[in-house]
Amino acid sequence: MKNKFLILLCLASMTVTMKAWTDDDDDEHEGKHHSRKSFLFHERRQVTTAPVMNAKFKAECTSCHMAYPPGLLPARSWTQMMNTLDKHFGEDASLDEATKKEVMDYLVKYSSDHAYSRRGSKILATIGSSTPLRISETPYFIRKHDEIADSTFKRKAIGSKANCLACHPGAEAGNYEEHDVRIPRADELPAKKK
């Protein structure tokens, strides 16, 4: 009986270790793998940056831009953003109170400090106590894109750093893996995504 229990325990720990290996970052010039320890502690938590899609969020926020996974920013960023929608990056994106609350609750629930995700925790680790509103201004984003020229971001099919989808086809589902990246050529036109 005791033997059986030990074998089970062994198997369980092997599974956890293997999972930790496969979840290791595959990006180049990556820093220390500080996430391994935290991964073990967060084993049962959400591991994607975009666990679910909220219908209101999709309807209200994706007319002008892609659906940014809530796990890319901490709750304080989303709260500040939702409370300043009348001046949203230079545009008026105001919502009625009920809609605003539903969208804000969704963003906070899956924010990087409320739900664990590998990418989200890395961004979180680089921002200190600041409240970034642009994901592209976080040190993690800047480091990850240091080999991309400004002129590349300005290509017709990309436009700006706000358009993750142009190069990361799985961006809305939280997939930013380097081997899935495809940078549009200078002569390509913006892709139509619904």
Partner: peptide
């Protein structure tokens, strides 16, 4: 015609 937002969404 189709347009384009400032965040490059059609």
């Amino acid at each position: 015609a189709e347009g384009l937002t400032r965040a490059n969404k059609v």
